[in-house]
């Protein structure tokens, strides 16, 4: 049977994940340890997404395959994929420079640190365009998913912040803030699954 566009996309994710993980694992001669770690992390992330997609029920795969072919989805991917590529490259270039501690200038450090955030702005802009382009039910699904994602972030961070204020836990601020966006994405994915199931 001929693979659908979505199945091919999943296969690309797997191959990309394996290439990145292998490059990280085998590149000790040419790459810094931190860069290798980031490559392995990205690779494992891609492979994890592929595994997760394979574990999803059939109805989900069928609905997502249909969504994948829609004009709004094609336009969204065309805008998001280059932005995510720029983000990944920016992370790989900027992080070793910042961790090296060789840049004394504070404004330059700030500029470098904020560089990976710029493509994320384009991702959000593309997502907004996607939400505006889809039909009314899909827009409702997207907005409910974002709402659930935001609630999950609040449900995790609010009790943690209270525990931190009560000096029960002592989380480092940097990583704690860094995980807001991935947690939001995870919450959105959970929310989208739940909402899609509700309206199917």
């Amino acid at each position: 049977m001929k693979a659908s566009g979505f199945q091919r996309y999943c296969l690309v994710l797997l191959v990309l994940g394996l290439c990145l993980a292998l490059a990280g694992l085998l590149g000790s001669r040419w790459l810094a340890d931190s860069t290798r770690g980031e490559l392995v992390g990205m690779g494992v992330g891609f492979i994890g997404v592929w595994v997760l997609i394979r574990l999803m029920p059939r109805w989900w795969t069928e609905e997502v395959s249909e969504e994948y072919r829609s004009t709004a989805s094609v336009r969204y991917r065309r805008r998001v994929l280059p932005a995510m590529l720029v983000y990944a490259v920016a992370i790989l270039v900027v992080m070793p420079l910042l961790k090296g501690g060789t840049i004394a200038s504070v404004p330059l450090r700030a500029l470098l640190a904020l560089l990976p955030a710029a493509p994320i702005f384009f991702v959000f802009h593309a997502f907004l365009g996607y939400v505006r382009a889809v039909d009314e039910l899909k827009r409702r699904i997207e907005l409910e998913a974002v709402g659930i994602g935001a609630m999950i972030v609040c449900l995790v961070y609010f009790p943690l912040s209270l525990l931190q204020l009560a000096k029960v836990i002592d989380l480092p601020a940097g990583p704690a803030m860094l995980y807001v966006f991935p947690l939001m994405c995870l919450g959105y994915a959970v929310g989208k699954f739940v909402t899609m199931r509700r309206y199917r």
Partner: peptide, 22 residues
């Protein structure tokens, strides 16, 4: 109707009520 097949399915199964324009 310029909507997705999933929307038609949700309308038919009564899981979603359409907007006035739809």
């Amino acid at each position: 109707l310029a909507v997705s097949r999933q929307t038609v399915n949700a309308l038919e199964t009564g899981k979603y009520d359409p907007s006035l324009p739809l």
